[in-house]
Nucleic acid binder design. Structure first.
Lengths: 335, 335
DNA sequence: CGCCCTCAAGAAAGCGCTGTCAAACGCGGC
DNA sequence: GCCGCGTTTGACAGCGCTTTCTTGAGGGCG
């Protein structure tokens, strides 16, 4: 435990060459059973742990997979990270997380950081890194992208059908008899937010319902913006009996704003979110929302990465999105 | 962008020795201005990024700080990770996260992993790694521990006063006139949970209130257990007008269970949580809870780590815990 | 019985960088 | 013009491991 135990030390102790020890560790070649046993025993006696840095330097593979996320503490991405972590478990590869905080410059630096860390592959979760840069990186090492589609890398991209999800959510409200459905939009610059807005409009169109711009309020995917948007909605002159928020966090904010104004969910106003965060099952009432299989997505992305690392094709399959109907939506009162 | 750019390549291109380039990068020694300019220019032309592995191997410092957390997607630890990340930002050090999943064996392996990764320091977030192992590790490199106190390492431990927090929460309910206060306990094996239970009892004792074991229900810190515990409470024979849950997630579950049984919060039952998760401000009604400065804690822990890395003392200061009174608690109806 | 082939094991050359040591250089002073 | 001093710079030996190339010992076969 004093001075670090090196492979050489183990080799000397066991009376073999360092090559032999290396071979035993990596299973790179046959080694006589006697020597193997002996070396393994000494390794555990000395409590030897290979130096990953040296190993990476010598072999050219660091056994690290870079994961560029936006916010390590985001309830949405959190589960995805968990999925990645669990899929990598036991494969010898290990995730290295780094956050871009929805800031292109920071994301670019994060990628440079990962590259200088000599990761063997990169998983990118959304964000705003220019396609070109990703294509660039993909030329050098395996890349899997979640939540967006990069030209030329389509089969390594795991997209979610935000449009269809939003459409489904809105249709659900329409089928319940709602005619005046408000929408709290997400950060306008996010592709996801745009798609969800489009899905909302498409559902209205399909039902031949009038699209009222007054019923669409901007938000930024955080609770506070949902609260504000809903307050504006209530104080506005346009009536509505249902709200579709572009994500669950904003739906939480909306829920509180309605509560403050004495409006009950779902009796007075139906509410639908998007994401199905872990907490959405336990709001009062439990929230109807579009479920993104976030953890599975992480898992699938990591699986794709492992395939790429083995030299195969990523073959990531598009994931299913589905509406989870809970108790925040009911048929519109005939009144 | 083809074959990786090495320091040697830059040196040759610039017509200087690799030592000189190294010196320019690290600022280890004076270098004539002309050469510096020239080398810097070539570095950016070639888009050179030092190989962190090689650097770590040669210098013995990997510039990585290992962070042993329990669950990368936990809403509670998430903010702490964020705090660590932000404190390390710009210092040259980078966090390497790994989860133990509240599983001692896994945590031990995680520590081995970090050591073999040759991190320069380790931050441990709670968990069940035996004190001895932590003392062992601390002998080899800087260690900061969050949420528990390890003998001999006291000044590198950042403890939260769970006892005082729970006491405060309970006292608050008592001051509002509540006499029958239920408690949903956390995972019995967690020190935090035990301390919170003790705080609850202490507050009751101080007010000369009878401690009724029937009003204490076991939980496991997750929503579902809060729901179950509260259901048991309601169906039990002992009346209560307030619930103190050992964490916010269980309080959410309790909230839903009360709702299901037609009990209103706070009119019929007052509810207090613990942690002040980001979402607790937006529950209906907003939750009264004990605030742990989770992000600040991460920040402080990382600061302490940086100090240790500079060879100074950690000097981590105990953090303040405080009760945030929102709308889930009210004076008991005189009825 | 000798030759060639096979397979285990060792020697040694890096991987890309840091850091020590010594050489080279320039400068002022005598 | 030469000496000594303080700087800038280069050469080189690792850091701990992988991997190629060799060596050496058996083993099968003619």
């Amino acid at each position: 435990m004093e001075s670090t135990v090196t492979l050489d030390k183990v080799a000397r102790q066991a009376g073999v060459s360092s090559s032999t020890v290396s071979r035993i560790i990596n299973g790179t070649a046959r080694v006589s059973a006697v020597k193997r046993e002996n070396v393994l025993r000494i390794m555990s006696e000395l409590n030897y742990h290979p130096n990953v840095l040296a190993r990476g330097l010598a072999s050219g593979r660091s056994m690290g997979v870079g994961v560029l996320t936006q916010d390590i503490s985001s309830p949405f991405y959190g589960s995805t990270l968990r999925g990645i972590e669990s899929a990598l478990q036991g494969t010898g590869y290990h995730p290295i997380f780094i956050s871009g905080h929805w800031h292109v410059q920071e994301e670019l630096e994060a990628i440079d950081f990962l590259l200088s860390r000599r990761v063997d592959g990169v998983i990118v979760l959304g964000g705003g890194v220019p396609d070109m840069r990703l294509q660039d990186v993909a030329r050098r090492l395996p890349v899997v992208v979640l939540g967006r589609s990069v030209p030329g890398l389509e089969d390594q991209c795991l997209r979610l059908d935000n449009f269809a999800g939003a459409q489904q959510a809105t249709r659900h409200l329409i089928e319940l008899g709602h005619r005046n459905i408000a929408h709290i939009a997400g950060e306008a610059s996010h592709r996801d937010a745009q798609d969800r807005l489009e899905g909302y409009r498409a559902a209205l169109d399909a039902a031949k319902l009038h699209f009222d711009p007054d019923l669409v309020q901007p938000g930024d995917f955080h609770e506070a913006s949902g609260f504000l948007a809903t307050t504006r909605l209530i104080e506005g002159r346009t009536l509505f009996s249902a709200v579709f928020a572009a994500n669950d966090q904003m739906a939480y904010g909306a829920r509180l704003a309605l509560h403050r104004k004495g409006l009950r969910v779902p009796e007075d106003v139906s509410l639908v979110g998007f994401d199905d965060l872990p907490g959405s099952m336990y709001t009062t009432p439990p929230l109807t929302t579009v479920q993104q299989p976030v953890e599975d997505m992480g898992h699938a992305a990591a699986q794709g990465m492992l395939r790429l690392l083995r030299g195969e094709r990523a073959e990531v399959q598009p994931m299913n999105i589905r509406l989870v109907i809970r108790e925040s939506t009911v048929r519109r009162r005939s009144s």
